[in-house]
Structure formats: structure tokens, C-alpha cells
């Protein structure tokens, strides 16, 4: 008896060990390197000078420039999340409740964008909104404007690009939540005197909160960590925090500063995840991704 129980207790760990090994080697070990780097210095030729120093951290935490860009990043990620939630909820509701249409087909449509590289999807906006893009060509052809309008390279287009990228994640998460809600609950609320809208706000909406929360967390974290969208669709003043990491490491070859910056971002986003987990639990997130 005891040996069966022992084997049962060991089984999950045995099954998990390949994954744990991968996470350990590919995530934790590099993270330790990054941590160590952040306390070293950039050598004159762009290499690494392995002398212990708080310089990088002093710069990251002390310089207003970094703080402002962090706030800007959080702002853009928040706006993106709100737009995704507002646009994604009705879409998810439709997919979850539609009758007579192949739901699998709708979900497939939702996945379709993932087949094209995120960078290419982002660049497609240049063909749409650029000075010689579709919208300007149309406006000029119709004689509404003579000179093309500069619509790209501002905060709005960064948000647009992020929404384009992140909306499917939001929709999927909300959909999974809504799909798990028994539709007779709304019928029951309705039969007890609530209007359709009241039944929705009293029953369906609160019950779908876990999915909405998980989708929001995902959008926020992925949005706040992106650097490609601001590079492609943002102007010079629209850099986000991950762009700083990119600049430090790729442009200035300052790995130690880049390490400190990326850890700072990791701590901020990690805090958001931990706080979320405390109040809502991450289990739902796994459901939405699966």
C-alpha cells in the first residue's frame, strides 16, 4: 500500500521532469546570467568588464528618463488592454453563442493571423496607412485630399498595432470563459424577471470575469514587453521600455545596462502577474492558452 502511494506521489514529478529541465536550462540559468551581468560593467570596446558595481542599477533607478518611458509603456499597454477588452468581448460572446455556424471555423479564423509573422502583420499597416498606402490613395483618388496625410508613426498607431497583435488572445480567453457558462443560467435570470441585458450583467458578465481578467493580463504583459511594434509603427518619441533594452544591447553593445533594464521590466511585469494571481489565480490563463 505504502509503496503504491509513494509511487503515486512521485509520478507527477517524473512526468514534469523534462519540462522542469527545459525551464531550468532555458529560462532560469540565463536569468541568473542576466542578473550577474547587471552588476558588471561595459568595457571600453563593448565587451564585458567583470567587476562588481551598482552603476547600472543606479542609472536605471535614478534617471527620470527611464521612469518616464516606463510610465509611457504602462500607459500604452493599459490603453491597448482596454481597447482589446471592449472590442474582444462582443466578438467572443458572438462566437460562444452563435447557432447554426461552425464554431470551429470561427475559431480557426481567429487563429489565422498567427500563421503570418507578427512582424509582417505589423508592417502591413504601412501599406494601409502610409503616405502611399491604401487609405491615402483612396482619399486622393476621390479628391478628398491632394497631399497624403501622415497617419503613421505616433502613439495611436502603436496602440493600433498592439491591438491588432493582441486581440485574438483577448477573444480566446473570454471565449473559453463564456463557453463554460451554462446558457440556461441566463434563461433562468430572464425567467425571474431580468431583461436580457440585466441577465447578462448580473450573471454572464461576472461569471466570465476570469476569462476577461486572464485576457487582460496577457494583453498587458505582452503589450508592455513589446519592442517591435513601436519600432515599426511608432515615431521617435514613442519608444517603449523594451526598446531601451534593445538599444542598450544591440546598438550600444552595453549588455550590463541592458541586463539591468530588462530585469527592471521583468520585476514590474512580474509584480503585476503576482498581484493578479493573488486575486484571481493563474489557472484560468492556462485554460485560455490551451
Amino acid at each position: 500500500m505504502a509503496s503504491i502511494e509513494q509511487a503515486e506521489r512521485r509520478a507527477p514529478w517524473i512526468l514534469l521532469s523534462p519540462a522542469l529541465t527545459a525551464v531550468g536550462l532555458l529560462l532560469l540559468v540565463p536569468l541568473v546570467f542576466v542578473l550577474v551581468y547587471s552588476f558588471w560593467l561595459r568595457s571600453a570596446v563593448g565587451g564585458i568588464d567583470a567587476t562588481f558595481s551598482f552603476n547600472n542599477w543606479a542609472e536605471v533607478l535614478g534617471d527620470r528618463f527611464y521612469r518616464d518611458i516606463l510610465l509611457q509603456t504602462i500607459k500604452i499597454a493599459l490603453i491597448t488592454t482596454v481597447v482589446c477588452a471592449l472590442a474582444g468581448y462582443p466578438a467572443a460572446y458572438f462566437i460562444a453563442r452563435v447557432k447554426g455556424v461552425n464554431r470551429g471555423f470561427l475559431l480557426l479564423l481567429l487563429m489565422l493571423p498567427f500563421w503570418v509573422s507578427y512582424i509582417i502583420r505589423t508592417m502591413s499597416w504601412i501599406n494601409i496607412l502610409g503616405v502611399s498606402g491604401a487609405v491615402n490613395s483612396l482619399l486622393q483618388a476621390m479628391g478628398i485630399v491632394t497631399d497624403p496625410i501622415q497617419m503613421l508613426y505616433n502613439e495611436t498607431t502603436v496602440v493600433l498595432g498592439l491591438v491588432h497583435y493582441l486581440l485574438p488572445f483577448m477573444i480566446l480567453n473570454i471565449y473559453v470563459s463564456l463557453d463554460g457558462i451554462d446558457t440556461t443560467l441566463e434563461d433562468a435570470a430572464h425567467s425571474l424577471g431580468a431583461t436580457r441585458w440585466q441577465a447578462f450583467t448580473e450573471v454572464t458578465l461576472p461569471l466570465s470575469m476570469p476569462g476577461l481578467g486572464a485576457g487582460a493580463l496577457l494583453c498587458f504583459v505582452l503589450g508592455a514587453g513589446t519592442y517591435i511594434t513601436p519600432i515599426i509603427l511608432g515615431g521617435p518619441r514613442d519608444a517603449m521600455f523594451a526598446n531601451l533594452v534593445f538599444d542598450a544591447i544591440i546598438t550600444q553593445l552595453d549588455w550590463p545596462l541592458g541586463a539591468a533594464l530588462s530585469l527592471a521590466l521583468l520585476v514590474v511585469l512580474g509584480t503585476v502577474v503576482v498581484v493578479y494571481n493573488r486575486f484571481a489565480g493563474l489557472g484560468q490563463l492556462a485554460k485560455g492558452l490551451g
Binding site: D182, L185, D187, A188, S191, G193, A194, T195, E202, L207
Partner: peptide, 18 residues
Amino acid sequence: IHKRNLGIVFQNYALFPH
């Protein structure tokens, strides 16, 4: 339905879980 003043008991009870 919400104006018909009916009491309905569903097969799966349909109690509001929250």
C-alpha cells in the same frame, strides 16, 4: 419571458454559482 411571471425549474437546476 421576463414579463410572463412564471417560475421555471430547469433540469440542471441553473442556480447562479457566484
